[in-house]
């Protein structure tokens, strides 16, 4: 899931300064689940904004997902009535909204932070950098790109502490020590004996993916 957090209040008020009639659009997808951009958070932000500026007219509207135009039907009717849109989706959703209504300024109310998991209620941890070439099969299900501070493929580096924590933070476990220990437990240490060659990074330009079964459909 995409994890996001609300931008500082002052940054939001600065972005929307001068606009008097705003629609704050929440998202029922990831940002709702991570407690950053669902109905509750939209209402809360609007309450804060109107408390700050009594003249501001700001309405709320939550759609199921801002990353799929199938869910935009109702929003299409509402959007043109406003002079600015605030989006509480992830960066992908904000862009999709902005692309849909190019004549209306669209502002992000959230910072999109990472792709991760729920450790507990309201507690999220990054687990994937969407690098496009998953090595988890060889690294015991522990991502060196995400969890190693240097993202190295032939770890651990020389900075691992004596207690097995990362050089950047004694409270952070060294990803490569964890990889080694778990592979040892599984009897699969041979998976990291060979030198991993330099990675062919693919995330340099915008990535587009069409699943195999749909390639014929979009061939033209």
């Amino acid at each position: 899931m995409i994890i996001a957090e609300r931008k500082p209040f002052e940054e939001i008020t600065e972005m929307i300064k001068g606009y008097k009639n705003i629609l704050n659009v929440g998202c029922g997808g990831c940002t709702s689940i991570c407690l950053a951009g669902g109905q509750k958070e939209v209402n809360q932000l609007n309450a804060e904004l109107t408390k700050e500026n009594a003249e501001l007219k700001i309405d709320s509207f939550v759609i199921e997902r801002q990353c799929n135009y199938d869910f935009f039907v109702d929003l299409d009717e509402k959007a043109p009535k406003y002079d600015a849109i605030l989006s509480m989706a992830c960066g992908a959703g904000v862009q999709f909204v902005a692309e849909r209504y190019t004549s209306i300024p669209v502002f992000p109310a959230l910072n999109t932070v990472f792709c991760g998991v729920d450790r507990n209620v309201g507690w999220f941890e990054e687990n994937c950098r969407t690098c496009g070439e998953c090595v988890l099969g060889d690294t015991a299900g522990i991502c060196p790109v995400t969890r190693c501070a240097k993202g190295i493929f032939n770890g651990p580096c020389g900075g691992t502490r004596i207690d097995g924590s990362c050089e950047v933070d004694p409270d952070t476990p060294c990803a490569w020590t964890d990889i080694f220990n778990r592979l040892t437990e599984q009897g699969r240490v041979d998976k990291i004996i060979e030198v991993k060659p330099p990675r062919l990074w693919q995330n340099q330009v915008r990535r587009v993916l069409i699943q195999e079964d749909y390639k014929a459909r979009y061939a033209e």
Binding site: A149, K150, G151, I152, F153, N154, G155, C157, G158, G159, E167, V168, V195, K196, P197, P198, R199, W201
Partner: peptide, 27 residues
């Protein structure tokens, strides 16, 4: 060398590169 993490230095908000690691650099 891999290099000490940028967080230790006087520009802790620099973007660490680590395009290749020290073993790969040798190769």
């Amino acid at each position: 060398l891999s290099g000490d993490h940028q967080q230790f230095g006087d520009h802790p908000n620099a973007k660490g590169v680590f395009d290749i690691d020290s073993v790969q650099l040798i190769s």
